[in-house]
């Protein structure tokens, strides 16, 4: 399935990242890279440090050691909104939508970095701000069409069922037109149909927009089917890295998931 898109150069390189919270070592000496246009999965048992890893890439956590190179540039301690302005978007394990706002407004908020009018112009609205709003509304409507959520665009997201909320959250991340998309368990808690839909969206995003995707997922079937390469974490350490088939036959990975006899 990865024939259509050419996997390019390394876009994100994570080198020897260590992160500790007090005495708890969440990540120790993790290195891996992500290539342009690929789907890179991070797997591991609960508490392995997967979400912490995404938070480090995002700038929510600042690791004690290690470096991150993004688009060839070394990244220093950086706040999340700066990371966003470099083209990184993400979704959350526990949905983090803006519950009081409509689906449309959530998606429009995703485009905030592309909106340039000042506060005075927004107070007047008619003129520059209206033109800008309409321009972005058109792009947002394309995403709404893509995710097939036309009928709920005016609904406050708090009223939507879980599966649709996950889809809206993907939409909000897509609205930012990211080059790197981080998905934290996009299929958790979904039934088979919803998972299939979500897989299709992830693959379509990757193929149509060429977005590089880093994905955390527990459903091994999904991971092995859609990802190009897989990183395996356990207790904050990297225990495997490679194409799905390599990882599947890696003894350390099998031990981590199935346990070992002592």
């Amino acid at each position: 399935m990865s024939d259509a898109r050419a996997i390019g150069e390394v876009i994100l390189a994570v080198e020897s990242i260590s992160l500790a919270f007090g005495g708890v070592q969440a990540l120790s000496n993790i290195s891996f890279d992500v290539r342009e246009h690929e789907i890179r999965a991070i797997i591991g048992p609960n508490g392995a440090g997967k979400s912490s890893m995404l938070n480090v890439i995002n700038g929510v956590y600042h690791p004690q050691q290690g470096t991150i190179h993004f688009k060839g540039e070394k990244r220093h301690r950086m706040e999340p909104h700066k990371v966003a302005s470099q083209g990184v978007a993400r979704t959350f394990q526990n949905i983090a939508l803006f519950k009081g706002m409509s689906v449309l407004d959530n998606l429009m908020t995703g485009r905030n970095l592309m909106m340039k009018t000042g506060i005075l112009s927004q107070a007047l609205y008619w003129g520059a701000t209206q033109r800008e709003e309409l321009k972005h509304r058109e792009r947002v409507e394309e995403i709404i069409d893509f995710l097939e959520i036309q009928s709920i665009r005016k609904t406050p997201v708090g009223r939507l069922p879980y599966g649709l909320q996950k889809r809206v959250e993907l939409g909000r991340a897509l609205a930012a037109e990211p080059t790197l998309l981080l998905l934290d368990e996009p299929m958790a808690g979904m039934n088979v149909e919803e998972k299939q839909d979500m897989c299709r969206f992830v693959l379509d995003v990757n193929e149509e927009f060429g977005t590089t995707i880093v994905l955390i997922e527990h459903d091994m079937g999904v991971v092995m089917d859609i990802s190009d390469r897989v990183v395996v974490l356990d207790y904050g350490k990297k225990i495997g890295d490679g194409v799905p088939d390599e990882v599947r036959s890696n003894q350390a990975v099998i031990d981590a998931y199935l346990g070992v006899q002592h």
Partner: peptide, 24 residues
């Protein structure tokens, strides 16, 4: 109903997510 209002509401509803999509 403009960008600034949405960034206020985003900050109100989920400040971490707001920052991650680029709201200072």
């Amino acid at each position: 109903r403009s960008n600034i209002g949405r960034s206020w509401m985003a900050t109100r509803d989920m400040d971490v997510a707001a920052e991650i999509i680029g709201i200072r």
